[in-house]
């Protein structure tokens, strides 16, 4: 069997570990869930090391795996868990502060969470992971054009949800929550 696979996996693992842990932490309400998602993502990746692309593409591929693992996780599918105490602890650390306790963020958070899951994932990959459209297309297994169209729609829905939540966004002054504006 080819022996370069463990090394290839390890290289991809090191490149992606910080990103995948961040990805999971941004999407899971509890650190334990995030740890599960991280552990399972790499377990699946190792199991399919054969399919692991070379170089930076590997990270995008891992995002794709993480996305599916995440979806399964919240469908109650918690099998093949390889969490370790260390991983639990590291992720718990990332949950030290709650990002959306401020009034503005709370309203934005509610608006954002009201969107369909697919919209949220598209917007998050763009806003949180900072991926380019082409990269998002690879993560989601979509064409660039499909990503462009879906993103456009997702943004429109987000804009509407924000307006309904009383949050107005403006280029210059950042966020102006209407509740506090006057």
């Amino acid at each position: 069997m080819d022996d370069e696979r463990p090394a290839r996996f390890e290289a991809a693992y090191h490149r992606a570990y910080g990103l995948i842990t961040a990805y999971a932490a941004r999407r899971c309400g509890e650190p334990q869930d995030a740890a599960d998602v991280v552990a399972e993502t790499f377990a699946v990746a190792w199991r399919r090391v054969e399919e692991l692309p070379e170089g930076d593409e590997a990270t995008l591929w891992l995002y794709g795996v993480a996305r599916k693992v995440l979806a399964n996780h919240f469908r109650g599918d918690n099998r093949r868990r390889s969490r370790t105490a260390e991983l639990d602890a590291e992720l718990a650390d990332l949950y030290g502060h709650c990002p959306d306790t401020e009034v503005e963020l709370d309203a934005i958070g509610r608006a954002f969470r009201s969107l369909p899951g697919d919209d949220r994932e598209l917007l998050s990959l763009l806003a949180w992971e900072g991926l380019e459209r082409e990269e998002i297309a690879k993560v989601l297994g979509l064409s660039r054009n499909a990503v462009r169209i879906r993103l456009h729609r997702a943004r429109r829905r987000l804009s509407r949800a924000l307006a309904e939540a009383g949050v107005h966004v403006s280029t210059r002054s950042g966020l102006v929550p209407s509740k506090r504006a006057l």
Binding site: A25, P99, G109, L123, R155, V167, V169, G174
Partner: peptide, 10 residues
């Protein structure tokens, strides 16, 4: 809109 949701990231 994208800017608006950035601070939500843990």
């Amino acid at each position: 809109e994208i800017e608006a949701i950035r601070p939500l990231a843990r």
